[in-house]
Amino acid sequence: MTRAQKPVRLKVDQVQKIYQTGAGTEFEAVRSLTFDLHDGEFACLVGPSGSGKTTLLKCIAGLMRTTSGEVVLDGQSVNGPAKGMAVVFQEYGRSLFPWMTVEANVDLPLKTSGVPKMERAERVRDALESVGLDKAGAKYPWQLSGGMQQRVAIARAVASQPSVLLMDEPFAAVDAQTRADLEDLVRRIWRKHNMTILFVTHDIDESVYLAERVLVLSSSPTVIQNDIEIDLPQERDQLVTRSAARFAELRAEVYERVQFAKTNIHAVVEPARFTEAHA
């Protein structure tokens, strides 16, 4: 089954966000954003800094009101944090409750949404196992390294079995080695649990390595500038994949588009072939 034949999980429909910046002035952060995320898709949103990535993610997560347009999750319009949406934030150290053990952190969304106790224990164990932390359940988050803390946050999201998992530059604050491990971990979890993931990053290599599809954002006021299919094999490996010729091509393509986005403000419609635009 091709992507388009699968049901739409997340529909972002002409989302616009204008900030009131006081004294009657306005700032249009997001102009008109439209894309669909289908069941089981792994998409990355990349864009130059200041392209409103975080604003957009907050709008999708229901943490921020959109000025106009609509976010629809499983056919339901999103007005505020929605059941079925899980978010992994960049600031792992501040997104886990330090007064709870790792297990209690992962369990909290299940407990408060009324999942039966037996099932909860099972799901928490399964999620912690998926991120390789099955032995750290009784520890407190602050007893773990940064990378491990982020894995706990991922486990919490996995345990809640979301329709869509949003990740906001989740690996921006960890060291390179940990980052590579976490990338592989997310790929593994995505396949194992058949998840639908929207992953925001500023790292072009990361977006190509991780996703099946890369959405390139324009500069602010943001629109989707490009929608690039990543036709790399499912089985990815830090060494093999990153040294593949196709990876280099895709990387170069995304890189050029992001460069284009940086220099061309309000580039709502891009020329058919990007290279020709420069000629």
Binding site: G62, P81, V87, F89, S95, F97, R156, S160
Partner: peptide, 10 residues
């Protein structure tokens, strides 16, 4: 971030 976390957890 903790507050946002609590919100998205529902």
């Amino acid at each position: 971030v903790l507050q946002n976390t609590a919100k998205v957890i529902g």
